[in-house]
């Protein structure tokens, strides 16, 4: 079998950060004697990303997501462990590897501020040595899909955040990378723009059969793009598998909603989410779903009944609530 494009084994990154108490006295003291704390940003993680696979990388702020992406794109050296991206160790920064991957950081801008994006595209063409035919084909296609024909000729500083992100991601993919590291590419964008970018990533993934490792705090990004998620917390992997299975494993409860002719004011069916005279929403443990449903049907004149998994946001929140020593 072919080796997956991204293979990570026991990857670790430790940052040495200076620490001091607040206040002038402590500042002066730290001039002479600086105290450091070792922060295990990434603490021995292992995973693989297959060819053409889109994997969502989830975790709260400071979980180690960006650090991992930066190691995989060659920016940071790992403390220990192995990483293999397209057959290369990323932090050796071989040109062969760098010309086949891309890193998009939603919070950083990459394009020349005062120039139209088209000039920056040309610069990328030169740096990545993209053959003219490929370059023009991709550029024209991206411009069409993202609908940025008018935007690419304006200086980047005159663009809105959404417009800028569109040209940023366009610039980042012109060289046709096989592996994409996307770090919160939709941050700060409105819902329509987020959907646009998601569709663009999906299209690129389908056309170029590229692997994508994506972080986002918007669950809509993850559910739309990734079938598989890796949940990282305190630098360790808590979960690696299907998004659906995650909901089952960590979403220990289901939501039952009934519409009835009359809902009793007092009852012991389960934790109430919403209750009116004719509607009741309750949360019950997965194991009690069948018996509770039977009781509801028995006790009330039920007009409508639905059983749902909790929203994925809620599931993720439960996963993140895991205490550090259990992680």
């Amino acid at each position: 079998m072919e080796r997956p494009p991204v293979v990570v084994e026991e990857l670790t990154k430790i940052f040495k950060v200076p620490v001091r108490e607040a206040g002038l006295r402590e500042s002066v003291k730290s001039l002479f004697k600086r105290e450091h704390k070792m922060v295990h940003a990434v603490a021995g993680i292992s995973f693989e990303v297959g060819a053409g696979e889109i994997v969502g990388f989830l975790g709260p702020n400071g979980a180690g997501k960006t650090t991992t992406l930066k190691m995989l794109s060659g920016l940071l050296h790992a403390e220990s462990g192995k990483a293999d991206v397209l057959g290369h160790t990323p932090w050796q920064r071989s040109k062969e590897l760098l010309s086949q991957i891309t890193l998009v950081l939603g919070q950083r801008q990459n394009l020349a501020w005062d120039l139209p994006a088209l000039d920056s595209f040309d610069l990328n063409k030169a740096i990545y040595q993209i053959p003219t035919a490929d370059f023009e084909r991709r550029r024209d296609r991206f411009v069409e899909i993202l609908d940025i024909g008018d935007i690419v000729t304006k200086p980047v500083r005159n663009l809105s955040l959404g417009e800028r992100m569109k040209v940023e991601i366009c610039a980042a993919l012109l060289h046709g990378p096989k592996v994409l590291f996307l770090d919160e590419p939709t941050i700060g964008l409105d819902v329509t723009m987020q959907r646009r970018l998601r569709e663009f990533v999906l299209d690129y993934n389908a056309v170029e059969h590229a692997s994508v490792l994506l972080t986002s705090h918007y669950m809509a990004d993850i559910t739309a793009l990734a079938e598989r998620v890796i949940v990282i917390h305190h630098g360790k992997i808590l979960y690696d598998g299907g998004l659906k299975v995650l909901a089952e494993e960590f979403g220990g409860e289901k939501t039952i909603t009934v519409h009835a002719e009359a809902v009793p004011a007092a009852h012991d069916y389960g934790g109430v989410i919403e209750q009116t005279a004719v509607k009741l929403s309750i949360r019950v443990p997965r194991s009690d779903v069948a018996s509770t449903t039977a009781r509801l049907l028995n006790d009330m004149n039920v007009l409508d009944l639905s059983i749902e998994d909790p929203p994925i946001e809620e599931v993720i929140e439960r996963v993140f609530a895991t205490p550090k020593d259990e992680a």
């Binding site: 930066k70 920016l75 040109k95 760098l98 890193l103 950081l105 740096i127």
Partner: peptide, 17 residues
């Protein structure tokens, strides 16, 4: 500011860039 990130992901000699 950490914006050197992008320069370092380019397939060209970083010192030259």
């Amino acid at each position: 500011e950490g914006t050197l990130d992008y320069t370092l992901t380019r397939p060209a000699d970083a010192q030259l860039l």
